[in-house]
Computed example of a mutant assay.
Amino acid sequence: MSEALTYEAAYNELQLIAEEIENEAVSVDLLAEKVKRAAILIEFCQQKLRATETEVNNIIKQMEGNKGKDS
């Protein structure tokens, strides 16, 4: 994969994999491959969410710190 994976792209791919599995559109030969890919995508999404949460919390702390300086 040459371009950087985004959260939205990973989430959309996960949805497609889930639909394929639910609809039994995945052959037994490809099932393990799809499940492995899903696991990779889930881990990517979890890491992205954790990083975003940390970043947002840091921004909020900075904003709160600046409020104290303005008073």
Rank of each mutant, 00 (worst) to 15 (best):
S2C: 08
E3Y: 07
L5W: 01
T6G: 05
T6S: 05
Y7M: 10
Y7N: 04
Y7G: 03
Y7E: 07
A9R: 09
A9Q: 13
A10W: 06
N12S: 11
E13V: 01
L14A: 08
I17P: 05
A18V: 01
A18Y: 00
E19L: 08
E20T: 02
I21G: 03
E22P: 13
E22C: 02
E22A: 01
E24T: 00
E24D: 06
V26R: 04
V26C: 06
S27H: 13
S27F: 14
V28K: 04
V28S: 04
V28P: 09
V28F: 06
D29N: 02
L30G: 01
L31M: 05
L31P: 04
L31D: 06
L31G: 08
L31V: 09
A32W: 00
A32S: 01
V35T: 13
K36A: 15
K36R: 01
K36F: 08
R37E: 01
R37K: 04
A38P: 10
A38D: 09
A39D: 09
I40E: 14
I40C: 11
I40M: 12
I42W: 11
E43G: 12
Q46K: 10
Q46V: 15
Q46C: 10
Q47Y: 13
Q47V: 00
Q47P: 07
Q47N: 15
K48Q: 11
A51G: 03
N57D: 10
K61L: 14
Q62Y: 12
G65M: 09
G65E: 12
G65F: 06
N66W: 15
K67V: 09
K69Q: 07
K69T: 13
K69C: 05
